[in-house]
């Protein structure tokens, strides 16, 4: 089908001629009609195909939208679950951190925790000029409890002591230093005040331990070495050494006593 064969021009010329050649005009118009009919059929076909494509596109679009929605929901859910896992991990980490600083037998802060606390306490004393004292306390003849009643009973005795120290000193000021040794911190106490406090503590100990004290075990006593911070040049290691030496003197002097490092 070719629109450039002059058919339209011929029809126009025939129509414009003063005397119509009716037969020639009829033939030309019939040819023109046939051409337009073919063109219409072709346009209809193209339109039909285009509609089909559009329909498919619409379908595809709908299916993409459904998949997109589904994936979006899945991503939101994955994020929600993931966030909950993160918060579970965070809580477990907090718990681990707490456990890493606690002594499992007595429930008191452990040596690692107390070392951090001592650093802070010395720094605070340097900055604020407030006094500071500390003591190392050792359970007398603890081996006799372990050997005579078993390690389970020994642990119970230590737990009772831990419980008592917890009640008699502010939270975090008593720690299990190792074995049957405890470190007692007296922030804002000079030597005299700490001594009074420690004497009172030793006197109150049997009563405070009683609720958890294991049956049939003789009550325990403590030997203590006490010292106070001596100012800016006094290092933490020196404080601890003096307390340790005083404790040694208390032990050698017959136990169940407090020795102050002057």
């Amino acid at each position: 089908m070719n629109g450039d064969d002059g058919l339209e021009t011929r029809v126009e010329a025939l129509l414009a001629a003063p005397a119509h050649d009716a037969a020639a005009l009829h033939v030309a118009l019939a040819a023109l009609y046939a051409r337009y009919r073919d063109l219409a059929a072709q346009i209809e076909r193209v339109t039909r195909i285009a509609d089909r494509y559009q329909g498919a596109e619409r379908e595809r679009g709908r299916s993409y939208a459904v998949r997109y929605e589904k994936q979006l929901r899945q991503i939101e859910k994955i994020m929600r679950i993931s966030d909950r896992y993160q918060s579970m991990l965070r809580d477990l980490n907090d718990r681990l951190h707490w456990l890493s600083l606690r002594d499992v037998v007595t429930g008191l802060p452990n040596r690692r925790h107390m070392l951090g606390r001592l650093d802070d306490a010395v720094a605070d004393a340097k900055e604020g000029g407030a006094p500071l004292a500390l003591a190392i306390a050792d359970v007398d003849h603890f081996k006799r409890i372990n050997d005579g009643f078993g390690h389970d009973t020994g642990d119970k005795a230590l737990a009772a002591l831990g419980h008592a120290l917890c009640g008699l000193l502010p939270d975090g000021d008593a720690a299990r230093w190792g074995g049957e040794e405890f470190l007692l911190l007296f922030p804002a106490h000079d030597l005299a005040a700490a001594r009074r406090r420690l004497d009172a503590l030793r006197a109150a100990l049997p009563g405070a331990m009683a609720p958890l004290w294991p049956d049939g075990v003789p009550t325990l006593t403590l030997s203590c070495g006490l010292t106070a911070w001596r100012g800016d040049d006094d290092a933490l290691s020196a404080l601890l050494s003096r307390a340790d030496e005083a404790l040694y003197v208390a032990k050698r002097g017959g136990r169940d006593r407090l020795v102050v490092a002057d």
Binding site: Q74, K77, I78, M79, I81, S82, Y85, M88, L89
Partner: peptide, 12 residues
């Protein structure tokens, strides 16, 4: 116990 994000996706 714990699954990271891509493991959650794989599990789904």
């Amino acid at each position: 116990l714990y699954l990271n994000t891509s493991s959650i996706r794989a599990m789904m």
